[in-house]
């Protein structure tokens, strides 16, 4: 589904990704781990199409199509969802309004008619129950005055509503207490699907205790230095990232 080949990407004059390659198939859950500054978040932003990052080499294809020239909204409509590390507050814009606009933008792209208000609300309430979210969040400003945990749940709610083919969750576990972490993990697990791929970007292995990945990749200095199954997470937990940096510099 997602194929990344020798990807180089920079922000300003600083190169962050250096020859990164990654293959993700439908139905798989991948975890991308690595120390701060290794390029994890950059990878997420580059896949989503953030303007600040420039692809200077290599390729990204999604369902066989070149992603690089596509605008962020076009990628989103193709089925790519990014769960933000720091979800953005948009004062005055109703959460439900944003969600409905997003759902309809995608439906329109797929040649479907707009979802009606009643059906939309019913669907949103269902998903919120699953995530243990208070329905009143629908009518508040987007992320406005939400706690850290509420913002992350809101991201998962959006993912549930948009039903992406590829979901990239950037540090979705950061800043969550254990209850919120369980709720968010429960939401992610419920969205695991043979037709859907999920990439978890995380610094710690904590989330992986609740969402079991099929593959784990370790990122260092802009490329993947090690890939393995879920046991790699435990190895990392024991030995720390320094161990990997030694591998990276040796390799």
């Amino acid at each position: 589904m997602l194929k990344i080949r020798n990807l180089d990407a920079s922000i300003g004059d600083t190169q962050i990704l250096r020859g990164l390659s990654l293959n993700v198939n439908a139905g798989e859950v991948h975890a991308i781990m690595g120390p701060n500054g290794s390029g994890k978040s950059t990878l997420a932003q580059v896949i989503a199409g953030h303007d600040d990052y420039v692809v200077t080499g290599g390729s990204i294809t999604f369902k066989g199509e070149d992603l690089v020239p596509l605008a962020p909204e076009a990628r989103a409509r193709e089925g790519i969802f990014l769960g933000f590390q720091y979800p953005v507050e948009i004062p005055g814009v109703n959460n439900a309004y944003l969600l409905k606009a997003a759902v309809n933008a995608k439906r329109k792209h797929q040649g479907l008619g707009e979802i009606d208000a009643f059906e939309f609300l019913k669907l949103a309430r269902e998903k919120m129950t699953m995530l243990d979210m208070d329905p009143k969040f629908l009518h508040r400003g987007v992320n406005q005055g939400f706690s850290g945990g509420e913002k992350k749940r809101n991201e998962i709610l959006q993912m549930a509503m948009l039903e992406p083919e590829l979901a990239i969750l950037d540090e979705t576990d950061s800043g969550l207490d254990i209850d919120a972490l369980k709720a968010v993990a429960g939401g992610i697990n419920a969205l695991r699907d043979p037709a859907r791929a999920i990439i978890l970007v995380t610094h710690y292995q904590r989330l992986l205790d609740y969402v079991e990945p099929d593959h784990i990749h370790v990122l260092s200095e802009g490329r993947i230095v090690r890939s393995g199954d879920k046991s790699l997470a435990h190895e990392l937990e024991d030995k720390g990232y320094e161990w990997l940096q030694d591998i990276a510099s040796a390799g």
């Binding site: 989503a48 199409g49 953030h50 303007d51 605008a71 962020p72 909204e73 990628r75 989103a76 409509r77 969802f81 990014l82 933000f84 979800p87 953005v88 948009i90 814009v93 309004y97 944003l98 606009a101 997003a102 933008a105 995608k106 792209h109 959006q158 948009l162």
Partner: peptide
């Protein structure tokens, strides 16, 4: 804010309006 809206599939113009 713009990137957030666009990542949710909303066009640039609609995002500005919103």
């Amino acid at each position: 804010q713009m990137f957030y809206c666009r990542q949710r599939g909303i066009s640039e113009e609609d995002a500005v309006n919103m």
